[in-house]
Amino acid sequence: MNIIEVDNLVKKFGSFIANDHLTFNVRKGEIFGFLGANGAGKTTAIKILCGLSKPTSGKVMVAGYNVSTHPEEVKSNIGYMSQKFSLYDDLTVVENIRLYGVIYGLSSTEIKERTEILLNRLQLQDARKRLIKTLSLGWKQKLAFSVAILHRPSIVFLDEPTSGVDPITRRQFWEMIYEAANSGITVFVTTHYMDEAEYCNRVTIMADGKIEALDTPANLKKQYGANSMNALFLKLTRKETVGLDN
């Protein structure tokens, strides 16, 4: 069963084509890696999938809803975590959890229950009243991920969740991703770490607004005769790009 269906998605900004006839599906419960060079059109596509931006043409279904006609339903059925901003620095750990719980319409009983489960799992009980800005980046990102799936969405979007995170925490973060996927949540993730691309069930590689490749990491490496995802990535995207970012 597909949780995301993208059919001939086109997004233009003036004469610039950011997404050029993208067609792909994401299956329920899979870890789907979304890779590409800077400026390849990844952020544009993610904004459309999250209901934040409308396609110029094409049909995009996410969690059973059409993003063009029902963006609000899409938003309430997904989780989203960005690299740059996901938690409020001047709120405490529990305040942030409560804020997101309320935004996603959880009852106060649900918020209380899930807050305790979350704090226990992350072993953050002692830090519950600490301001977010006093936590290390690694803790912030693990907490941000847990908050993004607090309302148990069917799919979660992670935009470069591990950038700059230390190597051990980066791996703990991926174990949380595995765990979420194991519990049935579909994970849609972008990353610049090529070893992380290997952790995905399937990956797609974008270049110049188009999908260059889409398959399991093993099949892609075989198909293009590359011995690592890094080599494959270089092979598929090594072009001089001078377009505008974002």
Binding site: G36, A37, N38, A40, Q83, E160, S163, G164, H192, M194, N230, F233, L234, T237, R238
Partner: peptide, 13 residues
Amino acid sequence: DEPTTGVDAVSRQ
């Protein structure tokens, strides 16, 4: 200072 952070693998190389 971190010239390649957030930069894709091609541009990093």
